[in-house]
Design a binder for these strands. Sequence first.
DNA 1: CAATTATTTTGAACGGTGTTCAATATTTTT
DNA 2: AAAAATATTGAACACCGTTCAAAATAATTG
Lengths: 202, 202
Amino acid sequence: MGRREEKREDLKARLLEAARDRIARDGVSNLRARDVTQDAGCALGGLYSAYTDLNDLIIHVNSTTLKALEQSLAVAEVKDKSPTDRLRNLAQGYLKFAKANRNLWKALFEHSLPEETPSPQWHLNEHLFLLSIIAEPLKELQPDMSDEDRAVRARTLFGAVHGIISITLEARFVGLPPERLERELDEIIVMIADGAASRREK
Amino acid sequence: MGRREEKREDLKARLLEAARDRIARDGVSNLRARDVTQDAGCALGGLYSAYTDLNDLIIHVNSTTLKALEQSLAVAEVKDKSPTDRLRNLAQGYLKFAKANRNLWKALFEHSLPEETPSPQWHLNEHLFLLSIIAEPLKELQPDMSDEDRAVRARTLFGAVHGIISITLEARFVGLPPERLERELDEIIVMIADGAASRREK
DNA sequence: CAATTATTTTGAACGGTGTTCAATATTTTT
DNA sequence: AAAAATATTGAACACCGTTCAAAATAATTG
């Protein structure tokens, strides 16, 4: 019967949960194969029957983090607001999520793939929703922009927002005073949104 | 004689050069203590007499990278231009440096300190020049802003520029098409600069 | 210039890492 | 119930950064 499949899925789930807990608590750089397998209640080698790699397991954790972020941003979304306000809301929502789930959020970016082995396509696709929800208010702001240009601009905007947040929260460089992060982020978003809007009238 | 001091400095220099070459070629995550020491022509333990750590050696490489960036931006600086144009120039200069020295540039940020051991103060200070040269055009743009606010804004601006560039060049997330990076960066800078300027007139 | 002391350089050894794989245990099929 | 197919196990492996007693070298002394 499908008992095999069942146990296999159960093991994968247990490993995933154990890894997520460990990452949330100690950060992705402190994740150890021996720790997760012990937490999950299987032998060391069991990890490699459920996932190809410790890296692969981390990618799956990141996948759940992205889903949680998606959920979080969807909740924070407000209709009946100006596109600028919607962008402001998204940026604040992203910041709020990053603060509330710092280690899981950091794992999305810290996780450096070995060599030139890029993330698998299915995981890269998961990033696209982020860009699509940014692109939507942009469309209202600059309706005459081509879809391609708008997609590029959404990436630019995300990069800027993420850069501002990460330089402060990751604290590996000279960041902002944390208490001023919200306002700075907000002002920059408004500047860019206004810039986009004025460009339309030009 | 000062023969001791002399040899010691020579070893430090050889290790530094070997490490920089290795990082530039293979990336900081592929730097191995056994490789650098072999390249530098000393025993494995020699590294730990010259530097406290492999991490410490990497920080010193990063220090030279920052100096090179400083040099590069100073050359690119143009007087007799509008503050907006100077900011545009700085952003393009930063991009150009990142492209030309990708692995060394990435090492400035990839390098994750273990636990909560922050970078030493002398190295953090080296970052400040970057912010100071951003703050200068900002002063012209918004002369009524307090020095502190301007310092914060400079960090924000750097975070945005760095975020846009790194999300594309580090390719660990969904980045921009590389050929559009220059223009996007430029347009965002102009938007923010114009936003800052218009705020002044408000 | 020895002889002695102070310092540096060396590299085998240590503890910890991710990963593998023959042996064992388990589930499925016959 | 026996046999075949599969999954789980954990000792062993290769590699990593780091340490530290021993060997080599430099400085000082008589």
